[in-house]
Every structure is written in C-alpha cells, then in structure tokens.
Amino acid sequence: NVSDADARFTDPEQAAEFVHLTGVDSLAIAIGTSHGAYKFKGDPYLDFNRLKKVGELLPNFPIVLHGASSVLPEFVAKCNEFGGNIPGAQGVPEEMLRKAAQMAVCKINIDTDLRLAMTASVREYLAQNPSEFDPRKYLGPARDAIKGMVAHKIKNVLGSSNKL
C-alpha cells in the first residue's frame, strides 16, 4: 500500500529491480514531470530526493525525464496573442531541469517547448501575412524558432554545450 502521492512517482527500488531484470538501455522515471502544457496545478515540484536515490541504486545508468518542457511563458503569450487559446499553461522551471541534468538524468524530453516555439512562429507569420498560403514561407521561420529553442536548451538548461 502506498499513498496517492507516492503512487504517481517511481519507486527507486522497483526501478533498479526492473533495470536488472530486463536489461533495458535507459529508463524514464516519474519524479513529477508530465506530458503536455499543463504540468502542475500548484507550484512546480520535482522529487530530487527520489532522483538521487535512483542515481545511487543505478550509478551511471541513463535516466530519462519525459514530459519535461518548461512551457516558456513568452511562447504561450505569443501563441495566445496570435489566436491561440492555451491559458494557464505551466511547465517545469528551467532551473529544476538544470538540476536534474546535473544529477542522474541524461535525457530530458522537451517536445511541448518545441511545438510551442513552432506554433507561435507559424501563428505570428500567418497573422502578419494573411494572404500567404505557401508553407515554405511560414515553415522557414518556424524551423528557425525550433533551432533557437534547441540551442537555448542545450546551452542554458541541459548543460550539453560542447559535449560529445
């Protein structure tokens, strides 16, 4: 029997047992992240003590965080400014992701941030160029927005600059 709160999180001992029994290459664990643009109803929380324990039980084993986008407010605002409707979206603060990356986590999934960057760019372009219908025109800036987001995450959040 576990509490409702603990039921949503990875049990470190079970994670270690699972890795040893299955021989998996990496493991996505639950420490408070979730998919989508609405990750927290209250204050953002990641269970770093749980992550530390997993790292101790599985030293040098690749740990993954799914659903770890920051849902940066400026991209939510841009989406909404140009016709989107995603009020109250909230992600994992970047400083929390940086801390996780300095611990046992080696891969952080940020798909929602990439989709927000692209969608904000496409919405802005089409709003400013309403007669345009050539995807090559609005997807170019959208690709640039994704490249910018990826560069920001690599350099400022994930700590992966200049690493092989």
Rank of each mutant, 00 (worst) to 15 (best):
N1T: 15
D4Q: 12
A5S: 13
A5T: 14
A7G: 10
R8L: 15
R8D: 12
Q14D: 10
A15P: 02
A16E: 03
V19A: 10
H20P: 00
L21I: 07
L21T: 11
T22P: 04
T22L: 03
D25Y: 08
A30R: 02
A30S: 14
I31L: 01
S34I: 07
H35L: 11
A37I: 04
A37K: 03
D43E: 15
D43Q: 11
Y45G: 01
F48N: 05
F48L: 09
R50V: 06
R50W: 04
L51V: 05
K52Q: 14
K52V: 06
K52C: 01
V54M: 04
P59A: 09
P59L: 11
N60L: 11
F61L: 05
L65G: 00
A68K: 00
S69C: 11
V71R: 01
V71I: 15
L72P: 02
P73W: 12
C79K: 00
E81H: 11
E81Q: 12
E81C: 02
F82L: 08
G83K: 06
G88E: 05
G88V: 06
M96F: 12
M96I: 05
R98T: 15
A101K: 06
Q102E: 15
M103P: 01
D111A: 14
T112H: 00
L114M: 14
A117P: 02
M118R: 05
R123A: 10
R123M: 09
Y125M: 10
A127L: 06
A127K: 15
A127T: 14
P135V: 07
K137D: 09
A142W: 07
A142G: 08
R143E: 08
D144S: 12
A145G: 09
I146E: 03
K147E: 14
G148P: 10
M149L: 12
V150L: 11
V157T: 06
S160R: 14
N162M: 11
L164I: 14
L164A: 15
